[in-house]
Design a binder for these strands. Structure first.
Lengths: 198, 198
DNA sequence: ACAGAAAGTGAACGATCGTGCTCTTTCTGG
DNA sequence: CCAGAAAGAGCACGATCGTTCACTTTCTGT
């Protein structure tokens, strides 16, 4: 049972990239089968249904996100350095790791935000854990620590700049977007770190 | 030829709200026909194809966006007051006008950003004109005027906060998101207005 | 009020959707 | 190396997709 796992991985990868472009629901099993070079019925040896495959895609994307964006930042000391590492890897995730298709998390979020079910729940949970972790880092940015409200507000802006970058570059074709996002984030760190306590 | 235009409007409205929830491609003609209370074939008396209907939806959404977000702000004097009016109406557009479905422009953007064709072009043009107009307002925010690069960077952040608000409230269920967005925008105006010239 | 146009229905089409079935090929543990 | 399991192909199914066409109902200009 070794070869099976390899193809299962290839299926998920192809499905994820197609879903990042066209959306999870818009990708048919025929599309995935063609992309991975299998027959439609062959897919059912790896997933019991289309829903199960979609769920596997969501899980794989979130796991990979943690692996690429959060995990390498953990090697940095808490505080500003770690926040900068997270942001830098987040940019890399959006602009390089998913350069052709765009960030699948943004696609999945807008697609699933009003569609109840396990995929939405999983996405919600993953994003929530990431958000909580980054908020903790923001709190450690200053002495005395930021209040939770201040840190949440800072995360709101950080996440906003990532979303803004995706739209600016992918829809508006703004080549300066990455620079704008980076500058906005650095300025956010500056004024957050040196702000007085409430 | 009076009744026809009315139903055509109802069709577009229903289709737009369905598309804001599930995406443009994911909405079938059967869905629209049911929602508006017509037969599938009846739709073809108002649109020659599904593509034409989708194009009409995009046009209607963008026109309504201009009507609700930009036009009322024109009554305010240029500068900070007008920018605040635009942002306030933009929030209203996202949070009230499309409360149940979420902003259709954000949905359409993530759906069409890597799907060439007339709908994408129309969306790109509409967003580009709006962006250029808001950038002009940012330039008028200070004396001497902001450079174009400074104004573009400010618009980038403004747009980012709107996108951040949508995700925070719709996916994360963050009730404070609207307050966060407003506070972030006011702070952006403050530091932009009193920044020194380059 | 009446004729012609517009609006809308219902059935049917070919294509594609997700899924189950049987059958063959390929792998892998003992 | 061989038997059993896993991986995959091919076909067929009912449902739904977008679209067309012939037909009926409803509106509207004169």
């Amino acid at each position: 049972m070794r070869k099976g796992e390899a193809t299962r991985g290839r299926i998920i990868d192809c499905a994820a990239r197609l879903a990042a472009v066209r959306g999870l629901t818009a990708v048919s099993l025929g599309d995935v089968a063609d992309a991975v070079g299998l027959s439609k019925s062959g897919l059912f040896k790896h997933f019991e249904s289309k829903d199960a495959m979609q769920m596997a895609v969501v899980e794989a994307v979130m796991e990979r996100f943690g692996e690429i964006v959060w995990k390498p930042a953990e090697t940095h000391p808490p505080g500003r350095g770690r926040l900068e590492a997270v942001f830098e890897h987040w940019l890399h995730w959006c602009e390089n790791e998913w350069a052709e298709s765009g960030c699948p998390i943004m696609q999945l979020t807008t697609e699933l935000d009003d569609q109840p079910g396990p995929p939405r729940e999983y996405l919600h949970m993953g994003l929530g854990m990431f958000r909580a972790a980054v908020i903790r880092e923001f709190q450690a940015l200053r002495d005395p620590p930021l209040t939770e409200a201040e840190a949440k507000a800072a995360y709101f802006q950080m996440r906003s700049f990532i979303l803004g970058l995706s739209e600016a570059r992918r829809m508006m074709g703004d080549g300066d977007a990455e620079r704008s996002a980076r500058a906005a984030f650095e300025a956010l760190l500056d004024r957050t770190a040196r702000s007085a306590a409430a």
